[in-house]
Write a protein that binds this DNA or RNA. Structure first.
Lengths: 242, 242
DNA sequence: ACACCAAGCAGCAAT
DNA sequence: ATTGCTGTTTGGTGT
């Protein structure tokens, strides 16, 4: 355990990435409060002082501390603790480490940024470039615009010069998508002093209740998908699989 | 590298938790598509076949595969790849492993569930038990109720027997909170055929625009907080700090 | 399954 | 720093 304390303190000062596993108990206090009784977990401490703690199931960490936290190992009699504090965020964590299973610390070189495709932004770009996919005669004016009424995905005129707000969803549109659209439409009506502004949800699908609310408000739905390049990845049988 | 392949295959069949670091390139195709050029990353494969991949910064994984994915190591000439597939979710990942930095596999025993306090649910429970914190004469009828209009945090009558919908937010209420409240209020008005239903946002704070929208709709704001036990955690100077 | 919603959401962009 | 919003959101709960 003394070796562990030396190792981790050294690693933290050197800005290495630390991974260890231990049997431990975790207390957290900050935006909420949590307690996790004894069990084996995986710990990851990054050079930016992010701490992520994983149980044996699920994608999300069970506990974590955000970047720029301060991590310390403390001996208290027979017990070993790690404390993590983030004064700025008023967050505190205390981990009683009962047993260390393994420890690794190493420098990690990685200056790369992930390149992501098929997002809602890609979708609004694509529809901006191909307005006929919304409807014949649609003339886009702007996309991804931050207005004081909110963040409007796609905005333009229809063939009758009526203003149209388009809200894009990369998946199934739900009630929240419709209320969001409605908020934009109403704000624009009010600010421009015009009676008629159309609202369109562009998404691959829409939930039943959302469609009902859409109809109640005389908005409309247009089936559309975010674009993908569909490059082949090893393990995929066919490109057409999804 | 051959040893690595044996180790990882063995670990995966035994249901151990695998952690390794490698220099690699990552391609993903599924709900979206991504590409991440060569760099050092930490890999975590859990007994439930969740894969989580971390870069040296931030809380969130840069890439991941959800539980029940299938992970395989493949040699292709001089290159080593790991493929992860989840047929059910139609998700595919391919990782070209250039160099392995370290590897660990170990059984992890952890049957514990995190105990969390200070959630929105705790807040609505507390306000249900202490209705005077909303306003004098408020009589709650239900809390956390799933209706076909949505999920209503707190519902009751005010001192004048007017129906009141309360939407709780554990942190600052925003525009979405107000539109959510408005949706519930309108649906209840319509379904019950009554003209007046009040709406209240209960939250520690509310954003400026949200407050304006709240006033426009003649709803009201009540300052309230989720309850916390505020137990002491090592590293916290005083209980009163937050 | 779908639907809806909270989250210690995280991360990002614009104000 | 605050606001608003997307996300390969994740995770939970109820229908």
């Amino acid at each position: 355990m003394d070796k562990f304390i030396k190792q981790i303190n050294k690693a933290l000062t050197k800005g290495e990435t630390v991974v260890f596993s231990s049997n431990c108990e975790i207390k957290y206090s900050g935006r909420a409060e949590s307690f996790l009784p004894d069990g084996d977990r995986i710990f990851l401490i990054k050079p930016d002082k992010t701490l992520v703690i994983h149980q044996p199931e699920g994608s999300a960490p069970v506990n974590y501390m955000k970047a720029n936290s301060e991590h310390k190992i403390i001996r208290d009699g027979n017990e070993t603790y790690m404390t993590s504090t983030n004064k700025k965020l008023k967050e505190y964590m205390e981990i009683r480490i009962n047993k260390l299973h393994f420890f690794n610390s190493s420098p990690q070189n990685d200056g790369q940024k992930i390149q992501l495709e098929g997002t809602e932004k890609d979708m609004s770009e694509y529809l901006y470039a191909h307005p006929e996919l919304i409807e014949a005669g649609f003339k886009p004016l702007s996309r991804e615009e931050h207005t004081k009424y909110g963040f409007i995905d796609l905005f333009g005129y229809d063939k009758n010069k009526t203003l149209v707000v388009v809200e894009c969803k990369r998946y199934r549109a739900d009630l929240a998508a419709v209320t969001q659209l409605r908020r934009y439409v109403e704000k624009i009506k009010k600010s421009k002093g015009i009676k008629r502004v159309r609202g369109i949800i562009a998404a691959p699908e829409i939930s039943k209740n959302a469609l009902k609310m859409l109809n109640d408000w005389e908005f409309s739905f247009k089936k559309a998908q975010p674009p993908k390049r569909r490059k082949r990845v090893r393990g995929q049988k066919k490109l057409g699989e999804f």
